[in-house]
Amino acid sequence: MIRERYLNLAIMLALLAVPLWAWVSDEPFTITLATRVAILALAGVGLNLALGLGGLVSLGHAAFFGLGGYAMGILAHHAQTYTPLMESPFLIEGTKSMPVIWLVAVLVSALAAFAIGLLSLRTTGVYFIMITLAFGQMFYYFTISWPAYGGEDGLSIYVRNGFPGLNTLDPIQFFGLVYGVLALVLVFSATLARSRFGLALAAARQNEERVRTVGLDAFRLRLMAFTISGAITGLAGALMADLNRFVSPTMFSWHMSGEFIVFIILGGVGRLFGPVVGAGLFIILEHILGGLSEFWMIYLGALLLAVVLFARGGLIGAFSGPEVGHD
């Protein structure tokens, strides 16, 4: 068995090596695939805070992914058409600057996660799953029927937004940026899991009564975790929108939420790098199976079923053995 830490390092290096090799051999499509992996992994890392650490099975994280995407779409749309977002009571203009867009995406999705969490965390178990799913769909149907930003057709952004000091239109530079964000969020996520907050949250997942006995409020811990988790997934949404230069209601679709959970399961629940491996595997499968058959989703479904029924612990679990101290 390999120590999980070394495995994580190898995963991170592999995710860096593949696009660098593609850059050297001039294959921009592979760089784009690697960028997609990194962005989807980021969304999965966000969800994993709620799901892996907090035990909150949210089937509505596409809501935050979509909100982040539309934060980018709406701001950049106003900037490219030179129309202000709002004129009264004060002037708000669109922007093409990534840091500003990221900040807005994080704030908007954190706010939405806080509001949804406030309502749905009153319940547990299967209620929580259904309610997060329903609220996620609410955003989906709202974007479809709201005509101002493209409705069902979505919004196209013609030029990728800028980041100071980088040429974001160059695939390898944009990948580097996304990779940096992913690395920072992974460090943040690891620190959070080891902090007093993270320990209390994990304890609330394992035994809520004991957590209450020592005077901690499990609801608050979960609400906090859900909010941070939503914010990270929102950031991933903004990056995905910039990768595609396009946002549409499908970002809000509940299949998206399902796929985020799939990344976590394929990689291993509660593992820091689980979503990174899962997202990588998902994209590789999509690429290989998609080349074999138009109906590749059948194979994906069968594989997923096999992993759930027979191979618990995911890919990282298969290589590094059962996690120490995990329930």
Binding site: V57, F295, L300, A302
Partner: peptide, 22 residues
């Protein structure tokens, strides 16, 4: 647990939908 149930039945959706399309 519910997580496994969600995933397994999500996998069933993929199989049913693509199977019907096929």
């Amino acid at each position: 647990d519910h997580l496994d149930q969600v995933l397994a039945t999500f996998a069933l959706i993929l199989i049913f939908s693509e199977g019907t399309r096929w």
